[in-house]
Write a protein that binds this DNA or RNA. Structure first.
Lengths: 253, 253
DNA sequence: CGGGAAATTGAGCATCGTCAATGCCTGTGG
DNA sequence: CCACAGGCATTGACGATGCTCAATTTCCCG
């Protein structure tokens, strides 16, 4: 799989390249800031409905930014590889998320982005995107919003990595996903985590074993129910309480 | 101190509001993408040479994004306050850095930004900035670059917080500052850290005591010299070696 | 020069990483 | 249809890293 993955594999379930019923860019073009004409024009520049399969790379670290992709369905992870081979997952992408933003600074992708499961993407070539910006200011406005949101999210992630105990990070993580699922119209109380325990650990800075123990503890506290990757949030309050039942932590409340 | 800090406190050392010899926005207007006319016009919209004093707030978390500020001189920190009162420093800003980017997503500042020492800023009102974008595409391009760079930096910070030992984070931190000082024309081998040990800890996810111990260890290894806040980098290679002399870590090489 | 904040350093122990054994689930081939 | 293999998850034991608490020294500013 290579950088061109989203270009070479049109998703057969998408009948038309232009009238893409599932396209997450519609969140952009339906914005009030778009005129119908500019929306149509923008839409024509998009490569619609590219499919990637589990483990495919959407882009590689070190390659130049060729296109922005937006996720229609499925899930992606973005990873940095450290000096010692440490894997850090910098984020998970789901429907509506734009992939490739960390390359905007220098034009070179800093991370690998990989499909966690089969996914559908829409993309727009970066040079084309830059041309459109001057014609359609709304595009720029929406890109700014996405980038600002990503900055805020990674700052929160830093706080979680830096200042929270393992169990708190887990609770935070589950609630982050709960919110994000709600934002795309799924249940915020019952959802399937698309990644495995190892990958949760690589995002939260924890070992696989610690993640597993933490989830078990939350379940014992009757705060959540776990069925493999399926999570049911039973009691948000209990989630935070469960975190504070360990010896030293009681003092902190 | 309040959100309007940069508006109400013109720096007397700046003689003119328009011809600001020290303005870090000159990095923008001198870009090849600016025509002389647009550079002049942009420059006229900037509030030049506002001074903030140590401990002043440049903006408060929860307030709306009123302006972008760029740092001319001095240093700022941006902080998130957690549920338990934990302080997370999400970044330090120095000359050329734009402050307020994490508010672009939702229009509300997510962090407090505070001067570590007396500083000089230039600012531009956000609504005005947005108006200018359509007239001067170069502005947008440069903002994008800054935001993309910030995303990449916070992802690296996540990796550091998540996957590195205390001493590695410190080495990483010192080298990050070394690079950034070099980028603004200062020595990369000898510089003064503007923040205190506690604040290094709040950025790196370490306790003050751990920071202090780590620095001492690097000094004992003859990798750096410490004189209070003044750091001399004596041997980059030894910095990384020093990290690996503790018991368990030898195995990892 | 003196007072208070910041930094260094020490001792003890909690959290979490490491290593390892076991259990569960799925897909495959006999 | 069942056995088996391989990946993934759970759970246990143990020890190291780094946090907490605290004493002391150094630095900075009035």
């Amino acid at each position: 799989m290579d950088t061109a993955a989203i270009e070479v594999r049109p998703d057969p379930s998408q009948s038309s390249r232009v009238d893409c019923p599932n396209c997450a860019f519609s969140e952009w073009t339906s914005s009030a800031r778009f005129t119908p004409d500019s929306a149509r024009y923008f839409n024509e520049q998009i490569v619609h409905g590219s499919a990637v399969r589990r483990h495919d790379y959407v882009h590689h670290s070190g390659t130049s930014l060729a296109f922005f992709a937006v996720v229609n369905s499925g899930f992606l992870k973005s990873t940095l590889i450290g000096r010692n081979g440490n894997v850090q997952i910098t984020g998970f992408s789901m429907r509506g998320d734009v992939v490739g933003l960390d390359a905007v600074g220098g034009g070179i992708h800093q991370c690998d982005t990989i499909a966690l499961q089969d996914a559908s993407l829409c993309g727009i070539a970066y040079p084309r995107f830059q041309q459109l910006v001057s014609d359609i200011p709304a595009i720029q406005y929406l890109l700014n919003k996405k980038m600002g949101t990503e900055i805020a999210r990674s700052h929160r992630a830093m706080a979680s990595l830096s200042a929270m105990y393992a169990d708190e990070r887990l609770v935070n993580f589950l609630l982050e996903f709960s919110e994000r699922f709600a934002a795309i119209g799924c249940s915020k109380l019952r959802f399937r985590l698309p990644m495995q325990r190892q990958e949760i650990g690589e995002y939260l800075g924890l070992q696989l074993a610690t993640v597993s123990r933490g989830l078990s503890r939350l379940q014992e506290a009757d705060a959540i129910a776990i069925d493999g990757k399926d999570i049911t949030i039973k009691n948000v309050h209990k989630m935070w309480c469960a975190v504070e039942t360990l010896p030293l932590r009681k003092a902190r409340c």
